[in-house]
Write a protein that binds this DNA or RNA. Structure first.
Lengths: 149, 149
DNA sequence: ATACAACTTAAAGCCAACTTTAAGTCAAGC
DNA sequence: GCTTGACTTAAAGTTGGCTTTAAGTTGTAT
């Protein structure tokens, strides 16, 4: 079962031009062509494209993804390198998760800040607010800010 | 207590040119100048710059951050808009967290895949591996892939 | 056989977010 | 007062990741 670039793009929810760009960048060396030169995607190509999407969402640049692809094509001698790259990226995802948690706490604080301000009709309500009226979870946040200055 | 752009950049671990760029883009309208035109950062400027860094790490484009900055300067009439923006960004962070979890599962699977292949000396070890030798947590992942094709 | 949508390429264009360059100014130490 | 390093601006350059354009080809439906 084969798919044209348009069909595959629809399945993956990307533009056909994106897939052509990936191909040009050497990320899709496995894609076959018809006698007339039309790209023919197979079901199994999805696996790699899904992986590619995941790595991209993990913040890996296309160049590195291409390196990974190249190693995969070189066979079993590159297993170690591929494992290293995966572990590096795994660590990067863990770091990003930690970062997002910090960001979420900050956004939760700001949300509370503006909800309170909205009820009061003014941000001035926060000017002289005693510490014990600030929800507990936000207190370390304010402390940390002071400390770092 | 004032800091030059170089000192502030060091504190925030960014390049001075980045802070100048942010200033040019209207993200730092509060920064004072010496009589000679040198930027003089105050301790309290850190708060906004830290927030800016957080929003950036949450994937908010500089244009939107500037909008937020502009609203802040307009006073209490824009509290609602600011709250909406914060909530929108909060949702975006929640979505990103979900995305990173999926990506982490995929990376964990790949890590196991290459660790196993490394021990066996070849990726071929996975070709005919029965489902019950694949760690449980990765099985739904493989099922899902099949389904989507 | 012809029309027509979807495919092909190479090259140029675009956007965000910086970074670099060039030419000049400021200010602290000698 | 002079040197020197850090600052100033405007403008141009860079990078990554596409998207668009232009000119042409393929393949399916009638």
């Amino acid at each position: 079962m084969f798919y044209t670039i348009g069909e595959m793009a629809q399945k993956l929810n990307v533009a056909p031009s994106t897939l052509r760009y990936y191909d040009k960048e050497g990320l899709l060396p496995f894609v076959e062509r018809s006698s007339g030169g039309i790209r023919m995607f197979k079901d199994e190509d999805m696996d790699w494209l899904r992986m590619l999407g995941c790595l991209k969402k993990a913040g890996m640049p296309l160049k590195e993804i291409r390196t990974f692809m190249d190693w995969s094509r070189q066979g079993d001698t590159t297993i170690g390198q591929r494992l290293d790259l995966i572990e590096k990226q795994r660590q990067s995802v863990l770091d990003q998760q930690k970062q997002l948690e910090d960001t979420l706490l900050m956004l939760d604080y700001k949300r509370w800040y503006y909800q309170t301000a909205q009820e009061a009709g003014t941000c001035a309500v926060h000017d002289a607010m005693p510490l014990d009226q600030i929800p507990e979870r936000f207190r370390p946040l304010k402390e940390e800010w002071k400390k770092e200055q």
